[in-house]
Nucleic acid binder design. Structure first.
Length: 266
DNA sequence: GAAAAGATTAAA
DNA sequence: TTAATCTTTTCC
């Protein structure tokens, strides 16, 4: 690694730990982005989509009373990742007028050969080792922004990937950001789709989810039954971690990503 | 310094 | 089934 790169890396690490809300105010803009620490950012042109007038399905998500939804405290997140994963099911993700109900998650844990924290603290993974309740956002395949919720105490290195959601509010905005004029599960069933629907980039990594404004997690209706299964797309991990049943979803929800066949009642 | 692969998605 | 697209990590 060159000296200049090392310097840049140090600066970014400091930034990653600074939990600063002011870094990403302008990200709703659909044209260009500011050139901060990242050298070049793509120009994102979102296709214009006519809003779909049909009501949200199923009925549960459209009956959630947002007036009563309260933001969750840091304590909620500072528990073991498997516990946090199941407890996040049914909770609400909000960014401005868009509200999503979390329907599917995966836990990534310390000493887990599938966890991004397995190589220790790096520029990208620093938020995972911070206190629970912050976001960890990373770019997958150079295209998709994946949202995780950091779990447990500072220094642990665990997180929960949000794999799918159901729309609660802001369907029009969601459809515009996704470029899909639909209210079917294809709209939000998949981790990259959730990130796109929320309009977040890696700049949001380390954003606190327990403070008002920006991106928040609110209390929501608890699921009655849940499904469990092995995690998706981690073939590179050790066999015990590939087979570990650390994927969870709300039973009976249509808002679940592929593959569904590996999920079983808990 | 180069190369490979990735917690994916949408279109062919 | 495959291309898109770029950061991180590993290998020589």
């Amino acid at each position: 690694m060159k000296k200049s790169q090392r310097f840049k890396r140090t600066i970014k690490l400091k930034k990653a730990f600074s939990a600063n809300d002011e870094e990403h105010e302008d990200e709703n803009a659909s044209t260009t982005s500011t050139s901060t620490s990242r050298s070049k950012k793509p120009i994102i042109v979102r296709p214009k989509v006519k809003p779909n007038p049909q009501p949200l399905l199923p009925a549960l998500e459209s009956s959630i009373d947002m007036e009563k939804a309260v933001i969750l405290s840091p304590d909620f997140f500072q528990i073991e990742a498997l516990d946090l994963a199941t407890r996040l099911l049914g909770k609400l993700l909000r960014r401005d007028d868009v509200v999503l109900r979390i329907t599917e998650v995966e836990a990534y844990r310390p000493n887990d050969t599938a966890c991004h924290g397995r190589f220790g603290i790096t520029e990208r993974t620093a938020p995972i080792f911070g206190p629970g309740g912050h976001a960890y956002v990373y770019l997958c395949y150079g295209l998709h922004t994946m949202l995780n919720v950091v779990a447990d105490k500072e220094g642990t290195g665990a997180a929960v990937l949000i794999r799918a959601c159901a729309p609660v509010m802001g369907l029009e905005t969601i459809q515009q950001r996704r470029g899909q004029n639909t209210n079917k599960p294809v709209l939000l069933a998949g981790p990259g789709k959730v990130g796109q629907a929320l309009g977040i980039s890696t700049e949001w990594s380390n954003h606190p989810l327990y403070t008002p404004g920006g991106l928040e997690i609110l209390d929501g209706p608890e699921p009655e039954k849940i499904l469990v299964g092995p995690r998706v797309g981690i073939e590179y991990a050790s066999p015990e971690h590939v087979s570990a049943l650390w994927r969870f979803a709300i039973a009976d929800s249509p808002w679940i990503s592929a593959p569904k066949s590996t999920l079983r009642p808990a």
